[in-house]
């Protein structure tokens, strides 16, 4: 048995320790906001926060997440909620499928750098593919979030 702490809740699951965290979250815990996109850690759709660091959950064995705090798109983290508000305000999503991963990556960015430059954004978001091409709005939504935070 492996115990996972996801969004503040404990889940005891009976899976092989090498099962990628992604599939434990989606198929066992049944939180489906975290997406499968490539399975090889290069598209970012499966990003979650593991002890506040963004990781591609398709590459992390579930055993490596034991004892750590996992935050998914369904979870609560101050910057995540602020970013979600900007995502909605600027109509960022088109098909929406990659956006949970984009939001997690953006959350991790703002956790680390409170006022990122375009270069910082490029670096933080380069691992997330959006086939619909919503990148420009993602960038704008990150900047908007920062502006609103500055205004308090």
């Amino acid at each position: 048995m492996i115990t996972l702490q996801i969004n503040g809740e404990k889940h005891k699951i009976d899976v092989a320790p090498e099962m990628p965290l992604l599939w434990a979250i989606r198929d066992i815990v049944e939180l489906t906001g975290t997406k499968y996109g490539c399975g090889i850690g290069i598209c970012g759709s499966c990003k979650v926060l593991l002890d506040n660091s963004p990781v591609q959950s398709c590459m992390i064995p579930v055993s490596a997440a034991e004892g750590k705090n996992v935050i998914t798109i369904e979870g609560v983290s101050k910057n995540l909620q602020l970013l979600q508000d900007s995502w909605t305000a600027l109509n960022v999503p088109q098909c929406g499928f990659c956006q949970p991963g984009q939001l997690i990556a953006a959350t991790a960015l703002l956790d680390k750098i409170s006022d990122p430059t375009d270069e910082d954004i490029n670096e933080a978001m380069i691992g997330n593919i959006c086939r619909c091409g919503t990148y420009q709005r993602i960038k704008n939504a990150i900047h908007r979030t920062v502006e609103l935070k500055k205004q308090g």
């Binding site: 906001g33 369904e74 995502w87 909605t88 929406g96 949970p100």
Partner: peptide, 10 residues
């Protein structure tokens, strides 16, 4: 549907 897309519930 933007809100559902942004909070993972879609």
């Amino acid at each position: 549907d933007t809100e559902e897309y942004s909070n993972g519930s879609a």
